[in-house]
Design a protein around this nucleic acid. Sequence first.
DNA 1: TCATTAACACGGG
DNA 2: CCCGTGTTAATGA
Length: 208
Amino acid sequence: MNTIVEENFSHLFDREVLKEISEVGIYKKVLAGETLIEVGSFIKYMPLLISGALKVFSENEDHEQILYFIERGDTCAMTLNCCIGNTKSEIKAVAEVESEMILVPVDKMEGWLSHKSWRKFVFESYNNRLFEMLEAIDSLAFLKLDERLLKYLQDKVLVNKSEVLTTSHLEIALELNTSRVVISRLLKKLELENKIILNRGKIEVLIY
DNA sequence: TCATTAACACGGG
DNA sequence: CCCGTGTTAATGA
């Protein structure tokens, strides 16, 4: 445990915080597609990502919206929020790819705010997530669907660390809240523009 | 104008 | 056969 924390977080935290994390943290590995946090659940642990990526949504009856991805060195701002207020989760988190993380019990971390490196980490996390959400809103409000689609694919390339995405048109349509016909048409257009190459169940992204 | 829904054909696994 | 893909036609916002 000690060495895992040392190796992955020594650039973020000072010695004391690293020690605290080592004492209470739990190592966890999840497979792609696994759900970590459900809307309405109480959050007991905060994830510190070591590898992989988590996809964070807001969700209501008929609608899902991607808010941001959490990657190595990131944590979830909504989790921080819930810890402090001890409220239910407003978001859903699913592993985008196979991911490793350290789970920190939320009741332990409140006292850590007295450590400078932890405070800095929390504020920077808030900042980053806020920025990503602004981008998500911008993309929703101002980008046309074809631009959103390309951006979505490029984001996927980043978090999957592969230019070849394994996904179907239907899956993309659901994520972007549109219909499969539209995605098929726009993907075809992107292929004709030499931005992607289409194959059954696979999309190779050429520009990112 | 552009998205959605329904419908169809084709092909791969 | 089922699923993913590409396309069209009708309808609606």
